[in-house]
Design a protein around this nucleic acid. Structure first.
Lengths: 196, 196
DNA sequence: GATTAGATTCCGAAATACCGGAAATCCGTC
DNA sequence: GACGGATTTCCGGTATTTCGGAATCTAATC
């Protein structure tokens, strides 16, 4: 058969899988390896490597995994779309998207682009005195990285509680309910959410 | 046959693939979906989904891809090791590791743990008037996310130049030389480096 | 131009991923 | 405890991946 790739559910747009063959071949050639060499390194037969590199076969994750280890490429990055923007994108102070109706007495300024899902998001959060931000658990494995710019905040993650003042930083898993509050006065924090 | 997973080249340690079935099943159950439901959503048959979730079959990347889209999980993250730390880690203002001898007139406060390489790093950088931080290109695909806390800074990435003041944010690729400088007075910026 | 060494592609045969329907298992409800 | 309804697993058959070897292609050398 001519095209073995079962590309059902493949709208015109994101055929990320079609990029994989070329990337694999490039990775191999970059290291000056022959098909036979990677075959011995990975345990995948030469013919299979050849077919995969020509897009004539859709490898099982097991074999792909073995290939990535032999070629020393990152399994994850291999399947990601070419995500490179050309130049500097600037988001001016006045035009930062802001959410006010979440939590109480706090405004959330979204500093990362909405498209960029799956890696990390960046927020600038400003609390009035007594402001509270309550969050439900995110996806398992996610972590937050919180740095206090000014004021004093109280951080609660699961059962644990910490008091943080300007300059302090806290990191914590967020597969559990967590709360940030500014009890003693206004505060500003910088929050990086790393998706799990 | 009982175990179809071709697990050749599988040292005792990182059998990341063995985690995949459980993760898929968890993702499905979290959304309250039945095998039949995801089958219709993804185009993969119920039986296949069942087999994959029980580790009795190693899916091709094509079918796995379809599953990830139906379950709305990140293909990349699915294959990464479980990276969860137990509780809140706190880094106090006074004990933040700081670098002063890089660049001129600037001190770099490292807010992310050194172990956590490969995802993102977080820095709090403080410039004296005239301070300059020159950086060589990082790994291709890396991006920086810079937010100005106070003062005015000049950002140069490749050939492009932008002037940023307090509250402004800039995002830019760093597979090219880039420079941050505070020409008109002291400044403080927050920098998130996303590894490519 | 012929020879040789290396790399890649082609070709059965065996293994296994994949599908659709049937059987089995799990629950609530009467 | 028996009866739906829903979910999951089992069981054919088919399509595709995967392997090892043979054939083809590529280039350098003589």
């Amino acid at each position: 058969m001519t095209s073995a790739m079962t590309d059902n559910s493949t709208p015109p747009e994101t055929e990320v899988l079609s990029l994989l063959p070329a990337r694999l071949r490039a990775a191999r050639r970059d290291q000056g390896l022959s098909l036979d060499a990677v075959a011995k390194l990975s345990g995948v037969s030469r013919s299979m490597v050849s077919q995969i590199e020509r897009g004539e076969s859709s490898p099982t994750i097991a074999t792909l995994w073995n290939l990535t280890r032999a070629l020393q490429v990152d399994f994850a990055g291999l399947l990601e779309g070419a995500t490179d923007a050309p130049g500097i994108e600037v988001l001016r102070d006045a035009s930062v998207p802001t959410i006010n109706n979440k939590g109480q007495g706090c405004s959330i300024r979204i500093l990362s682009p909405p498209e960029e899902v799956g890696r990390h998001e960046v927020y600038d959060i400003r609390f009035a005195e007594g402001g509270i931000l309550d969050s439900d658990p995110h996806k398992r494995g996610s972590r937050e990285h919180l740095t206090v710019i000014s004021g004093i905040v109280r951080l609660k993650a699961g059962t644990q509680v910490e008091l943080l003042k300007a300059g302090d930083t806290a990191r914590y898993p967020v597969d559990q309910p967590h709360t940030i509050s500014a009890e003693t006065g206004p505060a500003q924090v910088f929050l990086v959410v790393q998706d799990g």
